[in-house]
Amino acid sequence: MSDPNRETETEMKARSGRNLAIAIGLFAFVVIVFVVTIIHLRSNVAVPHS
């Protein structure tokens, strides 16, 4: 007799898709914050007088 609590293949596939989407979203957020920080740092770096 099969376990009624066991995920079906469709459920497992849907869960994997959701997990992947969250991972991509979080990674994109980290990259955006990093790039924005670099842009702000560069614009605030004082250019030394020659």
Partner: peptide
């Protein structure tokens, strides 16, 4: 498995496209 989770089984699982 809670009753709510069991009830959810009656619907297709949420895909990322639904979100």
């Amino acid at each position: 498995m809670s009753m709510a989770q069991a009830a959810d089984r009656s619907h297709a699982p949420a895909r990322w496209q639904d979100f």
